[in-house]
Design a protein around this nucleic acid. Structure first.
Lengths: 188, 188
DNA sequence: CCGTTACCATACGGCAGCGTATGTATCGGC
DNA sequence: GCCGATACATACGCTGCCGTATGGTAACGG
């Protein structure tokens, strides 16, 4: 497998996700990524109409990958709802089961969504799906639909917030999340 | 009070925080803020050495204001630790008790901190102080130091994460936070 | 072997933002 | 009523990034 002689649009998209994770949305620039790939920007404008086109394709790819990424694993493993929730937390805090560079990409997209409607839309779709799945797990685990939805919001919200705290070194992502899950699973 | 005839550095900093909240870090540009203030960039370079100088002063101001913003209110109100925690959650989810444009500015600075060491440092300082205060409240409320610290991380982490979910319309910030607080205050 | 197509390089004009240099108006102090 | 300091305006060159235009090359079908 000698270094590929020609690039595909997917290669560009993957490189763009690396840049996104490292430098945020504002780092996604045609010429910069071209330098990273050691080609000229002529290549970029062959594969993409312009920069917004690349960004749109990034969101499209991420939406598809992120929606069912972990969920498929969990469902394949089976087990009780409580087991699945525990496994879910462990996979989610373990990184690397998420597409395009783990949580780094996720938080970058979340940052992106604050000032871009398209990114916000993709994010909302993914978040809604995930919340629904977690809520369902709580539901089949013995809680009412309302309780399940509320607990799902808490668990997922804590995941997002604790991840940023963990990035500062102020939280133990997995430990804290497992603690919270135990609390949420206790009958109130 | 007729429109001030001349600007101060603080006027620039306040305007910069507005643009930060609205457009993120990458929107903090000398010429853009100058247009917003209806002056020329000559004014900017009178009050500041360069753009990094402005950003540094923004972080400095925010650090000071954000550290003791809510805490002073809570302590002034008095009450039991449980009362204070409840009041804390209500003030924190109510916005407007935070400096420079509420949570919008906070999340923008958090976004900023992901790719800038200085912002990350200011954020870590503020977060550390807040976590310590909340942990202390749990501590004097009848929990061990470890329990208090863990519960503080959960409460504060959930605040951060739920705020982003609430921005998507996927969570009820105040309601969910109060729910979590009730859970955390129940003896485990 | 020849042309077409895929893929990339190079070169160009344009704009936005930066920082500097320098001009200009206002104003308190004496 | 001059003078220095303050608070801006204006004009300039520079750089980074955009998008386009155009030229080159290698592979591949016929």
């Amino acid at each position: 497998m000698q270094t590929k002689t020609t690039l595909s649009a997917d290669d560009w998209i993957k490189a763009a996700f690396r840049t996104l994770s490292a430098g945020g949305v504002q780092a996604i620039k045609a010429e910069a990524i071209a330098r990273d790939l050691k080609v000229s920007k002529g290549s970029f404008y062959w594969h993409f109409k312009d920069v917004p086109d690349l960004k749109a394709q990034m969101l499209e790819h991420w939406s598809r990958a992120a929606t069912g990424a972990i969920i498929a694993d969990i469902e394949a493993a089976g087990g009780s709802p409580r087991d699945r929730l525990r496994l879910l937390v462990e996979e989610a805090t373990g990184d690397r089961s998420l597409p395009y560079g783990g949580m780094l990409a996720e938080s970058a997209i979340r940052e992106w969504g604050r000032h871009d409607a398209a990114a916000a839309g993709a994010l909302k779709t993914v978040d809604t799906h995930r919340l629904a799945y977690v809520a369902e797990l709580f539901g089949t685990g013995g809680f009412t639909a309302d309780q399940g939805a509320a607990k799902a919001r808490l668990l997922y919200g804590a995941l997002i917030g604790l991840e940023t705290l963990a990035a500062e070194g102020l939280a133990d992502l997995r430990g804290d999340m497992l603690n919270l899950l135990t609390d949420l699973l206790a009958d109130s």
